[in-house]
Write a protein that binds this DNA or RNA. Sequence first.
DNA 1: TTCTAAACCTAGTAAGTTGGTAGGATTAAA
DNA 2: TTTAATCCTACCAACTTACTAGGTTTAGAA
Lengths: 154, 154
Amino acid sequence: MLISTKGRYGLRSMADLVIYAQENPVPLREIAERQGISESYLEQVFALLRKAGLVNAVRGSYGGYTLARPADQITVGEVLQALEGPLTLANCAKIGNPLDCEKMDSCLTMPFWKELSAKMEEVMFSTTLRDLVTKEKTPPEAGRGTTGKNERGN
Amino acid sequence: MLISTKGRYGLRSMADLVIYAQENPVPLREIAERQGISESYLEQVFALLRKAGLVNAVRGSYGGYTLARPADQITVGEVLQALEGPLTLANCAKIGNPLDCEKMDSCLTMPFWKELSAKMEEVMFSTTLRDLVTKEKTPPEAGRGTTGKNERGN
DNA sequence: TTCTAAACCTAGTAAGTTGGTAGGATTAAA
DNA sequence: TTTAATCCTACCAACTTACTAGGTTTAGAA
């Protein structure tokens, strides 16, 4: 149940942008070199990130990519969702989409999948790109769907 | 990033055993019929469950499968781990196995993956098969790696 | 002893996904 | 006009998934 390289490469690349795209756009060639990723494969990853409105592209020479919003306003969940699709381990946990779950009324496992998905989203959408870079995670503000405590421990 | 059918079928089958394998072993034919799963595919799922020591098999006529331990002593995490392998979304989050993570010292995303994996395991290993069936989740006892609060909300 | 129904085992397989590569077209700064 | 970048599409080999098929072994019941 590993996530695909799209998600992992994309997240590392976004963290790279936080650091290196402070004033000038960063070309994929640099990211690919720093992160050890195939450049043409990164193109496909960034096509998804751009369509999701998470990065801005500057074409032509001296072009590259920048973050579309400040690093503390882009969550890891947004990045992974753009690259991996729905952030759930079972279809029946998708909100508003109990399609291919034939017997959802009697399914004993659906509540578990929903609880698990909720916990995963809690982590993913309360962690920003800024948090990845600054080590000290900023306490989530009210209304951001978490417990309020600054939970660490890794 | 969906989990495979092995994990989902297997978990539903284990919940089925909680209900129907009270005194007699339950043959796969019945589970397959109730759950709408291919019987010969279920055989392969149960081969993994048996090797993991989660079910006992009774061969011959009137045979079938029973849970190897009481339902409240088998966690969802154990079942999924037996069927899906390591319960993590990124290799670098696996304990004692930072193998194919070349630059783990400088990797900005590893702490996130570790935090996410920890939260996922907290849910998976604190939910038992009994919890799936009884709706009211039993509060985890001391030493089982969770907050102590009975967290619901689905 | 034979029948039957079950677990057990191995091989194959069509379809889909993954993780790329290749080759170009377009854009814009120098 | 050159250069360096994004952008776009097609292709591909390897792998995984979700099965099916066809058997062997086991043990209860007739």
